[in-house]
Design a protein around this nucleic acid. Structure first.
Lengths: 219, 219
DNA sequence: TATAATTTTTAGGTTTGTCTAAATTTTATT
DNA sequence: AATAAAATTTAGACAAACCTAAAAATTATA
């Protein structure tokens, strides 16, 4: 099925709105897409004829199976590109969303397949969101406190609860960012500090306080 | 200046047609873009009001300075993406054009800047075409026969004149492809064969016949 | 439950980029 | 130079995606 950029954006937005509401309404979608309710109605009719949504005049709508799979494949493309922009091109993770919004509409299947394996089949994007696999399945990944990561198990930094400048400056100093691979070498019972290790960097020690602000994914 | 995908495609096609003809005509452009002459005329009016072309009703048209710079920046994006697809994602060089046609319209300047430096500021794309720099200047690179490459000077494989399966199979065996770095260690006067060296590979010997089919860039 | 408020849809228009068919203009030919 | 051929442009339409304003349906409230 060949979809326009606009159709893809509608599908994606419906998917996101559905996460918090069983059925979506026209005004909410219009707001999400920075457009008007009338435009939404027009598009809903089109998406219905393309059998991507379930839609009853005046009674909300939702993605059907086909629509959901379509949404997941768009989200997959978006998140893989975000990962690429941060991991390979060195963008800050908070600057990549807009660019990925454009890249996600490039439709070659082969491209995404090769990009995925080039990036090492990542499971999590730079914002800490899971990347759907080729079959549209979301990986089930548990997010835990770095402090709770078992010794010598590798975790992927997913988020940082304290976003103060001081904290970010410190993380920057240690080379820790979203997506960083992190391992605990040793714990010190005396003050509960941790010796951690990141790839291509010397081991370093962080306090319990810092560790508790860092969240990681591990499987 | 923010241009639509369609406008960018027109600019790019005019640029390419101008390489072989001083002034371009409507039918040729229509053919190049797989569209109709009437559509071309419509777009020419628009490009004229945007001051990208010089255009006189019934008397052909051509890019002005602004239009030429615009074309070069689109071509720069296209060729950088082609380089990326081949060098990083492992696409065959003859499969990347269509995908790059889509990627080239993603407009972030920062993206192209970072992509360029990530790729190592390449000067030549996988088809052997020069990549315009940030200022729209085409690098001046001479393409010569591998047979004419001076001893111990490194050349970059730019094209292969004989595209037979047998030839490609042989090049593949030697690990020679578009973009390969190649150096001549020694020439044998007896049969004019050459001992060549590629990075990370043992030296090998190729015949005069093979060498004359390979073209390289060197500065 | 009747009426008010809200939500959604319809009706009719706009812009971009395309098209066909007809009308112009230029170029080629006799 | 007149006419035929070719190229180009105009005129008028169409589809996609958007808009405003008005109408219709649903939901909330007095």
């Amino acid at each position: 099925m060949n979809l326009s950029t606009s159709e893809e954006n509608y599908i994606k937005s419906i998917y996101h709105l559905q996460k918090t509401a069983e059925t979506v309404n026209t005004n909410a979608l219009a707001k999400e897409l920075n457009t008007k309710a009338a435009s939404v109605t027009d598009m809903l009719k089109k998406l219905k004829t393309k059998k991507l949504i379930q839609y009853e005049r005046y009674y909300g709508f939702k993605l059907n199976e086909k629509g959901t799979q379509t949404a997941l494949s768009i989200i997959r493309r978006h998140r893989l590109w975000e990962f690429f922009l941060v991991a390979k091109l060195g963008f800050d993770w908070d600057k990549v969303h807009i660019i990925a919004e454009e890249l996600e509409h490039v439709s070659s299947i082969e491209l995404i397949k090769k990009l995925d394996s080039y990036l090492g089949n990542p499971k999590i994007d730079p914002h800490g969101d899971p990347i759907p696999d080729v079959n549209g399945k979301l990986p089930s990944i548990k997010q835990i406190n770095l402090f709770a990561l078992p010794l010598n198990k590798t975790g992927v930094v997913s988020s940082v609860s304290n976003q103060s400048t001081q904290m970010l400056e410190m993380l920057n100093h240690y080379g820790i960012g979203i997506g960083s691979l992190i391992k605990i070498n040793k714990t010190f019972d005396f003050d509960k500090s941790l010796e951690i290790k990141l790839p291509k960097q010397p081991a370093c020690i962080i306090s319990e306080q810092v560790a508790k602000n860092i969240f990681v994914y591990h499987d």
